[in-house]
Amino acid sequence: MISDLFSVTVLVGILASGIRLATPYLYAAIGETFSQRSGVLNLGVEGQMLLGAFAAFYVTLTTGNLWLGLMTAMLVGALMGLAMAYVTVNLQAQQGISGIGFYLFGLGMSDLLFQKLMGTVETVKGFPKIHIPGLSDIPGIGEIFFSQNILVYGAYLLVPIAWFVLNKTTLGLKIRSVGENPDAADSLGVNVGRIRYFTIILGGILSGVAGASLSIALLNVFQQNMTSGQGFIAVALVYFGAWRPTGVLGGALLFSLINALQLWVQVLNIPVPSEIAVMMPYVLTILVLVTSVSKVRAPSALSKPFEREN
């Protein structure tokens, strides 16, 4: 019954679930925020997440070292980012198309490696929950905020860091200017290509971590196509969040919390058809997007290759 939704157990459950579900979105979308603010649309996030998820899982499975797994995921993401940067910065390829290419590469390659190296679904022991002494014992709050694994904490720590880097550092100033008016940045001696390399590779690393957060922290399995479109939702969240880390956080939490809510709606046997329930996160997110009139524009140079005019 609907009133069941308002019990402490359910509210704590929704919040804890929402916070976990938002974790991979946060890593991927914050990374995408960096690359979009510098003017690069990276649609390959999903592929980077998948390869990152596999790399983290496989290295952890074979070495038993979670940190090594995480670092491999970051390395794999960085390499994918490097390739993406070469294609978009040096070859000035159409970013939407090449991004889809990298998605397909990540999807196919992670599957191929899974078939060749593992062959069947296995499990690992992932990052354990860290109970923060004292805080995690607080009823409700403790379970929601202070009994998660380290990658969940990391994702939320990333939001203020990203905000700080974008708004308070010279690097952030360069990133923003390169995404708005690369000609102006270039005329002031800012190396547009180098900044974009940096943000695309950073985006790749964070997408790799997003994948790892699924395969060695939240789920502790790897399966083909396990990201199931989360990389694309992350890209949409960057638009939703108006290219601001705090906005991305809001969007990721909103989407995830509604998803957690719809799980409870079904579990509590509230008479809503399952088809309607699973649509709720998408429908409500779109509703929020269209009703909250935002004047924020996309970075002016988004998805435009930079070339010195002749």
């Binding site: 459950g13 804890a16 399966q223 199931s228 479109g229 799980l263 649509m279």
Partner: peptide, 20 residues
Amino acid sequence: NVNYIGSFSDTALAAEAATT
């Protein structure tokens, strides 16, 4: 309690459904 998650591939949502 039955929970259809709307996807054949969303491992993360299936996991969260189990937790729920």
